[in-house]
């Protein structure tokens, strides 16, 4: 179980890090003044610094609330049941993206929908296969044929000559 305190703290630390990375990246291009006006790094430098400072602000506020025992920071951010539901949805998403990267979007679409319909939707194999292949076909017609936009293809499509 994660309380809101830890979620707030972790997020603020992450945005703090993001701000510092931007500041660091901006230093390379100079943050001062040259003959053509402000150097290219100036604007990102200050926005990065602003993000870092505001993140510190959130950290301080969160800590102050914790020390005072305010109810809001002790709220449950995520419990086991909810985390399970999120993960059950998110893990296949990640799998979809990984498959897309290696085998293209059509293979990933069919694999993902097949899994979602068969194991999460509780449909039988015939319906799931029909649904997954049908959706991939519809995407093909709508995007490749109608809008003339190619979707990401993998080795299988290349073998078929696309």
């Amino acid at each position: 179980m994660i309380t809101r305190f830890w979620a707030e703290t972790a997020t603020a630390l992450a945005t703090l890090l993001f701000g510092l990375v931007i500041v660091y990246g901006a230093l390379e291009f100079g943050t001062g003044w040259d003959s053509s006006g402000p150097q290219p790094g100036a604007f990102p430098f200050y926005t990065g610094a602003l993000v870092a400072l505001a993140s510190l602000g959130t950290l301080v506020v969160t800590l102050a609330q914790r020390l005072r025992g305010a109810a809001i920071v002790n709220e449950i951010f995520l419990d086991r049941e909810r985390a399970g539901r999120v993960l059950a949805f998110f893990a296949p998403l990640v799998a979809f993206v990984v498959i897309t990267a290696f085998a293209g979007m059509y293979v990933a679409t069919i694999a993902y929908l097949l899994y979602a319909m068969r194991f999460q939707g509780g449909y039988g194999w015939p319906v799931s296969i029909a649904g997954a292949v049908g959706a991939a076909f519809v995407f093909y017609v709508v995007f490749e044929r109608f809008f003339q936009i190619g979707l990401l293809k993998g080795p299988i499509e290349r073998m078929l000559g696309y």
Binding site: T15, G19, G25, F29, S36, P40, T47, V51, V61
Partner: peptide
């Protein structure tokens, strides 16, 4: 929270500055 609004805004600005800088031609961040 004002801090959170500033973080959201700053993250947006920082993301917008990634890539080619239209003024100097530098590739940033």
């Amino acid at each position: 929270s004002p801090f959170k609004s500033i973080v959201a805004m700053g993250v947006g600005f920082a993301l917008a500055s990634i890539g080619m800088d239209s003024v100097s031609g530098n590739v940033r961040l």
